[in-house]
Design a protein around this nucleic acid. Structure first.
Lengths: 333, 333
DNA sequence: CTGAAAGCGCTTACAG
DNA sequence: CTGAAAGCGCTTACAG
């Protein structure tokens, strides 16, 4: 790589580097004539200030980091896009950093390359969280509830999602219901089931252990789980199923159809998240809508408020809302 | 933010910053005793070397940038993931940078924050491309054919994709075929249609202008286009349709079904790309498979070869292959 | 209005 | 084996 430095520009223009720096930054008084001349040379030499040299002194890098474990799946696109848009408006760039190992992530956060971080990574330990806190690095978590002077969280109210699903199925008259559980030990999986059970309990319905199948948030796993349940044939078919996310709801429907059950005529299925595909699927999926772009937008705003206004961090929960489509129907009596 | 610098560590450990730097980098001989002591202090103070200071001198940042216009859609996840994995193995981090304006992208590339770039952005002009070339910045393009000492391209052979689709439909006996065109002025749109037409021509089939509908790579647009075509009712129904990508194929199928046509019994539909959804859809979509993870992997390898081995850039085309599922069937005579 | 100089946090010959 | 010093590419008081 051939780098053109401020020195090269200064020499070429016949001025000091101070003058070049000032005309570029707008700080300091420069005569119209000098300014124009310097700008002309800068343009001609295609000079771009080195990021590292520039920010070594100036500190703020005006870039924020979004740390994720993967970019696969439909969520991340919406999330990242919203963060990007919100950041751009405020003059910040966004770097999406894909990383698994939490120790490496910590280095990336703490090595001064970014002004703040938005983190979606359950692998960050309690200890590492503490470190972020000590070093006063502005952070917003998307997967846990932590707040401090420089730390915020913006998460979905998964308990509420489950509660809404339970209430809806109950209202439809179903009382033999099943659940496709999400990823093991995942916050959302746990909360969605908890909310679901609490809602059902209010209607006097409990959900037996055998009716909790494991979908791991995956289509295939969910499909196999429901097929296995049906093949076993030990328990009567549920009238309705709440799947912990849309993808596993699709898998569940696929399994049901393979075994000859119609959705929603024989079994109602409700999902969670409301990914784009819900609208295309046959039957169109009834689900609980969670807006990832809202999450991204709010996360960025919170982060910016901490960085620029020195605001104190906080925890915000986003509520889902039900989107009724075609995959559920009232119990036929 | 509270930054712990190498100076702080040196003072705390009672050694020079040279010693701290050496024990951390492994360069220079340090006694076992000093090394352990320094490491202990580093650990205790949670010292992480500043990225900017470190690389200002050392030049290489060991991070490569992936520049995209958006992260929405299913392609980017696979692409970014593959690049990430390939880069990790070689000790490189990856920063996905979402950006639209090509001038801003140029600054991000040229300001020395990355060692090389993988670019998926048609907005980069000829002039800007020239600039990259002059500055000898290692770059691989994912959306154009450019090669130079430090510049490579790795693209899909979209002409071949179209050709395969045409040959397949022809083999099925169809001779009244339509096409759902992709995005206007897009390289892939153009090439896919060109390959498709060439293949058909070999079988003596031409595709009239009226049978080229505009889907813009979008589901809804494709759906409306085919519905409008049917409503107009001026031309006989095509026996088979090649959609420029899978998403518009889904839209096309949806439109056909709305109008009472069955796929593939009444009309065969073939897509292009082979996104995950093809496997789930009803009917499962026959399509041309393009592997975005292969593209990402190869792009990263090419880039690394240019950066580390000083290899010369080159252009590589990836061929698609047909994946036959359920959305096409032979012409019934 | 302009420039010499100090300094940001690091690395790296070089001397001892 | 250890450290003082130069230097990476910038910015920013400060002097003139």
């Amino acid at each position: 790589m051939k780098r053109v430095t401020i020195k090269d520009v200064a020499k070429e223009a016949g001025v000091s580097i101070t003058t070049v720096s000032h005309t570029l930054s707008g700080g300091g008084a420069i005569s119209q004539k000098t300014r124009e001349h310097v700008l002309e040379v800068v343009e001609r030499m295609h000079y771009v200030a080195d990021f590292k040299g520039q920010n070594l002194k100036a500190r703020s890098t005006k870039v924020i980091g979004l740390f994720v474990r993967t970019l696969r799946g439909t969520y991340y696109g919406d999330l990242a896009q919203a963060i990007y848009e919100e950041g751009s408006n405020a003059g910040y760039g966004i770097n999406v950093i894909i990383a698994n190992q939490s120790d490496k992530i910590m280095v990336d956060i703490m090595n001064g390359r970014i002004d703040g971080a938005i983190i979606l990574n359950e692998g960050i330990t309690q200890k590492e969280e503490e470190l972020l806190r000590e070093h006063e690095i502005p952070v917003v978590f998307l997967d846990r509830e932590s707040a401090d002077k420089h730390m915020s969280s913006i998460i979905f109210d998964s308990y509420e999602d489950g509660r809404i699903a339970g209430e809806y199925l109950l209202g439809l008259g179903h009382n033999r219901v099943a659940h496709i559980y999400g990823e093991e030990n995942n916050y959302d999986s746990i909360e969605r089931l908890r909310g679901f059970e609490d809602a059902l309990a209010k209607g006097g319905v409990t959900i037996p252990r055998e009716y909790i199948l494991h979908g791991n948030f995956e289509r295939e796993t969910a499909c196999h789980a429901i097929e296995a349940f049906i093949e076993e044939g030990k328990y009567p078919m549920p009238e309705a199923i709440f799947a912990s996310n849309d993808v596993s709801a699709f898998g569940c429907i696929e399994g049901l159809q393979k075994k000859g059950y119609r959705v929603p005529e024989d079994v109602s299925v409700i999902g969670c998240d409301d990914i784009e595909l819900c609208e295309w699927y046959v039957p169109k999926l009834t689900t609980i809508h969670n807006s990832f772009s809202t999450q991204g937008k709010k996360a960025m705003r919170l982060l910016l408020a901490m960085i620029e206004q020195n605001d104190t961090g906080k925890i915000e929960k986003l509520s889902g809302r039900i989107v009724i489509r075609e995959s559920c129907m009232p119990k036929v009596i």
